[in-house]
């Protein structure tokens, strides 16, 4: 008997259909406030960056993930600082959600020596020393196998750490994605694969690139347990991530989370890129904005009387101040010494 692979995301990929409201009862007020504030911080940083790019103050390519905040924040809540997470070209959220310093991120995007990569990386090459976030670089699918290797290290260490590979739906079309799933499976490694399926590569709709929009079908093919979730529902993401992380931590091998989401802006830069995508339209973007992960959490918190609108506005004001301070500090910070160009090539 053959079981047909599920290839379709159904309503998760169709923003005209309504999804369930966000279930908040299992979380404390502190946790929910933390989710809300962290998502607001990520969004504010990226919106400010979009403006700085428009103002020509920031020049390096910024791949913004506005609209996708719930994925990083939900996944990170299930992780420990001793885990090893690797990102990609669109990793501001991964970095911030795992506790990377906001000021250092901002300085990095400005190319300043006070940045998280000492001004050598810009938006696309970011790092933290003290959190689980061990690096993001922009070659598509480039860090998936690197995370598998971190899984080898974690398994050899025997301390129940896990590794995390963040990648998008486009990366699932690279050969190394399949090599990496296979390797993690055959070595039974503690790796959490997180696919942020935002339904677009740089410009092409997933249906123009694959026979099916459900990326987790590749995990099925490698016998890796997976969950496919509404990536704009923070508690659904968090629940699934926690459940999968437990499996990996217990030494039961790799796991796969597909979080279906949507980026409000284009592949790179501050514009909506309606004219760039072959299918991407004003109607589609507007429909997806009704699934705003931050607004949905806010609605649930207010409805269940965990917070008032004023409480939430206050959080946003705190975040605005924090981000503004970071911009001012980044502006005033020095660039790397010219000697860094050659001095950093080798250890």
């Amino acid at each position: 008997m053959t079981i047909p692979l599920e290839t379709s995301l159904h309503e998760l990929a169709d923003p005209r259909r309504e999804l369930e409201g966000i279930e908040v009862t299992q979380y404390s007020q502190d946790e929910l406030n933390y989710f809300y504030k962290t998502m607001c911080r990520i969004r504010t940083v990226e919106q400010v960056l979009a403006q700085l790019v428009l103002d020509n103050e920031v020049k390096c390519p910024c791949h913004l993930g506005v609209g996708q905040e719930a994925v990083s924040v939900g996944v990170s809540h299930a992780l420990k600082t001793t885990d090893y997470a690797f990102g990609n070209h669109r990793s501001h959220a991964h970095y911030l959600a795992l506790g990377g310093e906001l000021e250092q991120l901002m300085a990095e995007v400005f190319g300043k020596v006070t940045g998280c990569s000492k001004g050598m990386g810009g938006s696309m090459h970011i790092f933290t020393e003290n959190s689980a976030f061990k690096g993001a670089v922009p070659i598509v699918a480039g860090t998936i196998s690197i995370a598998v290797g971190a899984g080898i290290a974690a398994k050899m260490d025997g301390k129940q750490a896990i590794s995390i590979a963040y990648f998008g739906d486009g990366a699932s079309e690279e050969g190394t994605f399949h090599e990496s799933l296979n390797l993690a499976g055959i070595y039974n490694l503690p790796v959490l694969f997180v696919c942020e399926n935002n339904l677009y590569s740089s410009h092409l709709d997933i249906n123009m690139r694959q026979r099916g929009d459900r990326i987790a079908r590749f995990a099925d093919a490698h016998k890796i347990p997976s969950r496919v979730v509404d990536g704009n529902n923070i508690t659904e993401v968090e629940n699934a991530a926690r459940e999968l992380v437990k499996i990996a931590r217990e030494g039961k091998g790799p796991v796969f989370l597909e979080a279906v989401t949507y980026r409000w802006l284009g592949h790179v830069g501050p514009h909506e890129n309606i004219d760039v995508g072959v299918r991407r339209s004003r109607e589609e973007i507007d429909a997806w904005k009704l699934r705003d992960p931050i607004k949905r959490l806010a609605d649930a918190m207010v409805a269940s009387k965990i917070a008032t609108l004023d409480d939430l506005r206050e959080i946003q004001v705190e975040v605005d101040n924090e981000v503004n301070q970071a911009v001012i500090k980044a502006r005033n910070a020095p660039y790397p010494e010219k000697s860094a160009l050659l001095d950093l090539v080798y250890a």
């Binding site: 090893y84 995370a147 390797l183």
Partner: peptide, 22 residues
């Protein structure tokens, strides 16, 4: 470790392990 026929992922995996102290 002998490996599947995956030069890219095996090299990436070695790099990843090297970033974690090996």
């Amino acid at each position: 470790l002998d490996t599947p026929v995956s030069e890219h992922a095996c090299t990436g995996a070695a790099i990843g392990a090297s970033l974690c102290g090996y």
